[in-house]
Amino acid sequence: MDIKLQQVSYAYSKGTPFEKYALHDVELSIASGTYEAIIGHTGSGKSTILQHFNGLLKPSSGTVHIGDRVVEAGKKAKELKPIRQKVGIVFQFPEHQLFEETVLKDIMFGPMNFGVSEKDAEKRARELITLVGLPDNILEKSPFDLSGGQMRRVAIAGVLAMEPEVIVLDEPTAGLDPRGQKEIMDLFYTLHKEKGLTTILVTHSMEDAARYADRIAIMHEGKCVLTGEPRALFADSATLAKYRLEPPRVVRFQHKVEQMIGKKLSKVCLIEEELAEELGQAIREGRAEQ
């Protein structure tokens, strides 16, 4: 399912003294099957933009295409529910949405809203709880007795249980332990690779954006200022700095090394493994020259 935003602007509290434009003429298109990262300084409009992806917010002006559905400013959008099943959103701090008596029931809440039978919903819940890395017996517990990290995983399972075609993640790992962060990010990456799930990740971690994303969009003061492939985008520190961002640690490290040895590596490396390989190559070449 492709998602396309054309000239989208959005104002909070429109028509009151508190009116505030959070998006200005945003142009963005995300092709089906891509892993897209949206990065940007805090308050740049990332959370606002992603609520347009399933019709939770309607643009103040402009149009949003979600698959073959069109949400247009000023027009009444009817029956958005089918869209919400196809585009799942994991909000910032999703643990706040838990409410059922048991974890099992909470995970089943989403699919059952979309007409999945109780039996199938339970089956999905049992599969997913293992997938998100929690023990089976947690299903019978109250969600309010879990730790923050466990609640987060349950909330994520609750969104995955709807079996969406597009998954939108708003800083899904904020506040988790480093190991847990990696597990969650790897889980989404596996789903993306194996099931072809279109994934949209809002993140403050340049490392995650570099490691997982096919494409990156940069938000700055309510505008989508730049889109492109991670390698090209992260090579240009000067532009990033203009938008109050920094390249990932690996890239910064590479720049330092290149300065010290007075030689450019053959490409910008996005992850540690790549950099290790390139450096090994450079060292071997260096020896051969001597």
């Binding site: 919400r84 809440f109 809203n113 969104v159 709807m162």
Partner: peptide, 9 residues
């Protein structure tokens, strides 16, 4: 919004 995203209406 979070519950609406999970299909509650």
């Amino acid at each position: 919004k979070a519950q609406m995203a999970r299909g509650s209406d």
